[in-house]
């Protein structure tokens, strides 16, 4: 199976690889995994407490090219957005952008889960109530 050019580009030049200080009040950390392929993905955000804008996003992924590309793209997309806005990103957007084949769709799911987990962690740390959207999803 051939990877799309965009996947190859993100794989060769991953954006925003790195680590943020997990203990910082402004940082949210999401660690997710896909048992089907053994991939693990950590995505971190640093949120401006005044504006709730994600000013920095870092990731570290151990997995296949699609998983790395999905998380790399995810960090690019959430940077500069508010946390609420970032939550609107869907895995299908990632699939489209990277032209992921069906067998690699779970990589995009993992990236969406990582965004949600990181934002969830930040909200918990900062005592931000779950949004209406999340409340609906929990029902």
């Amino acid at each position: 199976m051939a990877y799309s050019d965009k996947v190859v580009d993100h794989y060769n030049n991953p954006r925003n690889v790195g680590t943020l200080d997990k203990s910082s009040q402004e940082v949210g950390t999401g660690l997710v995994g896909a048992p089907e392929c053994g991939d693990v993905m950590r995505l971190q955000i640093r949120v401006n407490p005044e504006t709730q804008v994600i000013e920095e996003a870092k990731f570290k992924t151990f997995g296949c090219g699609s998983a790395i590309a999905s998380s790399s793209l995810a960090t690019e997309w959430i940077k500069g957005r508010t946390v609420e806005d970032a939550l609107t990103i869907k895995n299908t957007d990632i699939v489209k952008e990277l032209s992921l084949p069906p067998v690699k769709i779970h990589c995009s799911v993992l990236a969406e889960d990582a965004i949600r987990a990181a934002i969830g962690d930040w909200k918990k740390k900062n005592g931000v109530a779950e949004t209406a959207q999340a409340a609906v999803a929990a029902k």
């Binding site: 660690l31 995994g33 896909a34 048992p35 089907e36 151990f62 067998v103 779970h106 799911v109 993992l110």
Partner: peptide, 28 residues
Amino acid sequence: IGEEHAGKDRRDPSRVPPDLLEEVFDLN
């Protein structure tokens, strides 16, 4: 089972024990 079915049960946290995930990540 298998990669092509991955992600379907993603809301079921029991499938990925968090403690193991931490360990896997650290070791990597």
